[in-house]
Amino acid sequence: MIVLVLLGVLALAVGGCACVVWAERGGPRWVRAVATMTLAAGKVVRRSERNRRPGLNGTAGNDG
Rank of each mutant, 00 (worst) to 15 (best):
M1G: 15
I2E: 13
V5Y: 14
V5P: 00
L7P: 01
L10I: 12
L10V: 09
A11N: 04
A13M: 12
A13S: 11
V14G: 04
G15V: 05
G16T: 05
G16E: 03
G16C: 05
V21M: 08
W22N: 03
A23M: 06
E24L: 07
E24G: 07
R25S: 06
R25A: 08
G26L: 08
G27Y: 02
P28V: 06
P28E: 09
P28K: 05
R29S: 11
R29C: 02
W30T: 05
W30M: 06
V31N: 00
R32L: 05
R32T: 05
A33Y: 00
A33R: 02
A33F: 03
V34E: 01
A35G: 01
M37N: 05
T38D: 03
T38C: 06
L39T: 04
L39M: 07
L39N: 02
A40C: 04
A40H: 04
A41C: 06
G42M: 05
K43R: 08
K43T: 04
V44S: 01
R46I: 14
R46L: 15
R47Q: 10
R47L: 12
R47F: 14
E49H: 12
R50A: 13
R50M: 10
N51I: 05
R52G: 02
P54C: 04
G55C: 14
N57E: 07
N57W: 07
N57Y: 08
G58W: 07
G58Y: 08
G58C: 13
A60C: 15
N62G: 03
D63Y: 11
G64V: 11
